[in-house]
């Protein structure tokens, strides 16, 4: 029993997460406590969940893209665009009714999804490498976001908009529900239909997948559409959090954090198997790392150094050349076998 837990793909990420939380507890004994204030749960844990919501969302989309051997660099810019569209369309709302809210959400999500579709078309139909294809919108998308906001930070005074990222439902932040919903959607759509299997198949061996009758082009299009959608939702939450439209800085470097979360979660950048729950834990690790660095008084900016080290360690551990050099060939075989059985226990 103990062994099968150890073998689970989620084991190490969860241990790291727990370790980070324990370090926090060491510095701040009230870290894990959760209080009820004004009918809302508050506390550092809730805070991490709430602040980590956008990253978790974007990482969910990124997971599927990476599973097809792709990558989506444009998500940061899509966040900025979606937030700008959402906030700007309610900035001048006259009423406090819900009409403008739904218009804003619909508008932001439709455009974000279309933007994802653009990436998908470039990758699947024109055959541009994913890094290159999504680089275009990484650059231009932020420009478009700034165009929408006029380069200013426009404050929103329309209260209902705050609910997306700042509202509470059943004593929990509403953003947590959004994450749960999108995660559920992603899990259902990939694990209760054959889509997940097709994504993994295309990512693992595109040629053989084609000969088995899978329409890999459409699969790729779909994952980029979904990634765009996720980034759109994330953008809405972020801009609602601060009740403003900020084309300049919203979502800056989110693509890199998201890729990191996916990799920490156990999904290989070489495509194939993907682990949505692992990604969520990866995103939580990144978020709690940030929180920790704030709370124990280390300059916030060292966060980047820590991230760099984490990325390198994870990548080196995934590299067969590194493992054979460091652990020797015998162990390489063992870890390989172990890895494979992990893949079986958690699919």
């Amino acid at each position: 029993m103990g062994k099968s837990i150890m073998r689970s793909r989620l084991f190490w990420p969860i241990m790291v997460l727990i370790l980070i939380l324990l370090i926090n507890l060491f510095f701040d004994s009230s870290f894990l406590s959760i209080e009820v204030r004004n009918g809302r749960l508050t506390g550092s844990i809730i805070d991490i969940l709430n602040r980590g919501a956008p990253l978790m969302l974007i990482s969910i989309g990124m997971t599927l893209v990476i599973a097809t051997k792709g990558i989506d660099l444009s998500v940061g810019s899509v966040i900025a665009m979606s937030g700008a569209i959402g906030a700007m369309s309610v900035a001048n709302a006259e009423t406090d009714g819900l009409g403008p809210l739904f218009t804003a959400i619909a508008l932001a999500l439709v455009i974000s999804t279309l933007v994802g579709g653009w990436n998908g078309l470039l990758v699947s139909r024109i055959g541009v490498q994913p890094i290159v294809a999504t680089l275009i919108l990484m650059v231009a998308g932020r420009g478009v976001a700034q165009l929408i906001t006029g380069g200013q930070i426009t404050t929103v005074y329309y209260d209902p908009y705050n609910f997306i990222g700042g509202g509470y439902l059943l004593a929990l932040p509403f953003s947590v529900f959004i994450v749960a919903f999108v995660l559920l959607l992603a899990v259902l759509i990939t694990r209760k239909t054959a889509l997940g299997l097709f994504i993994e198949s295309v990512g693992s061996n595109p040629d053989a997948s084609r000969l088995a009758g899978i329409n890999s082009k459409n699969i790729m299009l779909m994952v980029y559409l979904f990634s765009g959608f996720c980034a759109g939702v994330g953008g809405l939450i972020l801009s609602s959090n601060v009740m403003s439209a900020d084309g300049n800085n919203a979502g800056l470097w989110f693509e890199l954090d998201a890729i990191l979360a996916v990799v920490i979660g156990g999904t290989s950048l070489m495509g194939g198997r993907f682990y949505l729950m692992g990604t969520i834990i990866g995103a939580l690790i990144i978020q709690s790392l940030t929180t920790t660095i704030y709370s124990i008084g280390v300059p916030a900016e060292t966060n980047l150094v820590v991230k760099a080290v984490v990325v390198l360690i994870v990548c080196l551990l995934q590299s067969p050349e590194f493992r054979s050099k460091v652990f020797g060939t015998g162990k390489l075989k063992k870890t390989k076998e172990q890895k494979e059985s992990e893949g079986v226990t958690l699919s």
């Binding site: 299997l197 993994e200 198949s201 990512g203 693992s204 061996n205 040629d207 053989a208 997948s209 000969l211 088995a212 194939g272 198997r273 893949g343 079986v344 699919s347």
Partner: peptide, 10 residues
């Protein structure tokens, strides 16, 4: 190997 099996799948 190249056109048959999907190595990462069961």
């Amino acid at each position: 190997k190249a056109e048959g099996i999907i190595p990462e799948l069961t």
